Simulated scan of single mutants.
Amino acid sequence: MKIAFYGSSLLSSWWNGAATYYRGLLRDLAARGYDITFYEPDAYDRQQHRDMEPQPWAKSVVYPATQDGLRSVLAEARAADIVVKASGVGVFDDELIAGIIEHSRPSALKIFWDVDAAATLDEMRGQESHAVRKALPDLDMVLTYGGGPPVVNAYEGFGAARCVPIYNALDPSTHHPVAPDQRFTADLSFLGNRLPDREARVEEFFLSAAAALPERSFLIGGNGWESKDIPSNVRHLGHVFTHEHNAFNCTPLAVLNVARDSMANIGFSPATRVFEAAGAAACLITDAWEGIEQFLQPNEEVLVARDGKDVAELVGSLDETRARAIGQAALRRVLAEHTYAHRGEEVDELFKKAVAPELADA
């Protein structure tokens, strides 16, 4: 079956946290026989910061961020059996969601795939005319990369025919243990772009912990932090490319995950970074969120902190032996239950059950 997927970027992780998620899922679906074309706009300098070239498992179409470019790629939706519009493309989002409904064949499966459900739902609550809210009656399903029951209930309350979370996961072919790299040496490291609904939580969980442990070393990677006032024991790296993530995770004593404000309020939404770190056998410290036991067991496979004071206490008491044991336990768990092969199997089953009858055996 042919999938037309309209997303932010498959080729670049530059200001695009969903890249790893897209890559892991679509690579697995291609191995299951799906013929995938990924449409991404030439926007936000992502094409100038590619960290992956086009792959044999998905045809990549980069289109100009213009009305003509939009029309040209929407016209190709008619050739697909499954048409997906992802959230957060950043260019023509409203036009894309309306366009896939207009240009897809009546028999095609039409899907909105929300990679930031909490933010989308907040917008929908405040805007009756929100493009996604208006599109829901014409969509076959909504998929999200997290959220659990609260997100499912909210989407179905807005009129979605069906909402199914497809959680982040590990792609063992790209994220795995490697040798340490001295560039990433630290007692605690954090990786994430500086975003308005993340900054306060980074201040609380990461920067306040660094300030409380002046004798320890901290490392922050991601775009936007270069203008932030940070403690003297915190080094800023700037953008860390996907191919560097393994060394970034393997080298420090521990790595930190901090949910953005919106997702922290919902729970059941492990970030991509959680599985990247576990896949590299890193000792992960995460802020507390509902449902974490579904993915990693606290104190055995992950360390959980309620605030910056907890983070400082965990880092202060952590030694290499315990950190290594936690990281190895996390790796075993995600390999057994949380790879993109597991997620791809879920999506494949969903598609086969939902697709138009004449395509069911394709």
Results as ranks from 00 to 15, higher is better:
Tyr6Phe: 14
Ser8Ile: 05
Trp14Lys: 03
Gly17Trp: 00
Ile36Cys: 03
Asp45His: 11
Gln48Asn: 14
His49Glu: 10
Met52Pro: 01
Glu53Cys: 10
Pro54Phe: 12
Lys59Thr: 13
Pro64Met: 07
Gly69Pro: 01
Ala75Asn: 10
Ala77Arg: 02
Ala79Met: 12
Lys85Arg: 13
Gly88Asn: 15
Ile97Pro: 00
His103Tyr: 13
Leu109Thr: 14
His130Gln: 09
Arg133Gln: 06
Pro137Ala: 14
Pro137Phe: 09
Leu143Thr: 03
Ala154Arg: 02
Tyr155Thr: 06
Gly157Phe: 11
Phe158Leu: 01
Val164Lys: 00
Ile166Pro: 00
Asp171Arg: 05
Asp171Phe: 09
His175Lys: 08
Pro180Val: 11
Arg183His: 13
Ser189Gln: 09
Phe190Pro: 00
Pro196Gly: 04
Glu199Thr: 11
Glu199Cys: 04
Arg201Lys: 15
Val202Glu: 01
Phe206Asn: 01
Phe206Asp: 01
Phe206His: 02
Leu213Pro: 01
Arg216Cys: 07
Arg216Lys: 15
Ile220Leu: 13
Gly222Lys: 03
Asn223Thr: 14
Ser232Trp: 14
Asn233Lys: 12
Leu237His: 07
Phe241Ile: 11
His245Ala: 06
Asn246Ala: 09
Asn246Thr: 00
Ala247Gly: 13
Ala247His: 09
Asn249His: 05
Thr251Met: 10
Ala254Trp: 02
Val255Thr: 09
Asn257Pro: 06
Ala259Asp: 12
Met263Ile: 11
Ala264Gly: 12
Ala271Thr: 14
Val274Trp: 03
Ala280Gly: 11
Cys283Met: 07
Leu284Ala: 10
Ala288Pro: 02
Ile292Gln: 03
Phe295Ser: 06
Leu296Ser: 03
Pro298Glu: 09
Val304Ala: 10
Lys309Pro: 01
Ser317Val: 05
Asp319Met: 08
Arg332Val: 15
Arg333Asn: 05
His338Trp: 04
His338Arg: 00
Thr339Ala: 06
Thr339Glu: 10
Ala341Ser: 13
Glu349Cys: 09
Glu349Trp: 05
Ala356Met: 04
Ala356Asn: 01
Pro357Gln: 04
Pro357Gly: 10
Glu358Ile: 12
Leu359Arg: 07
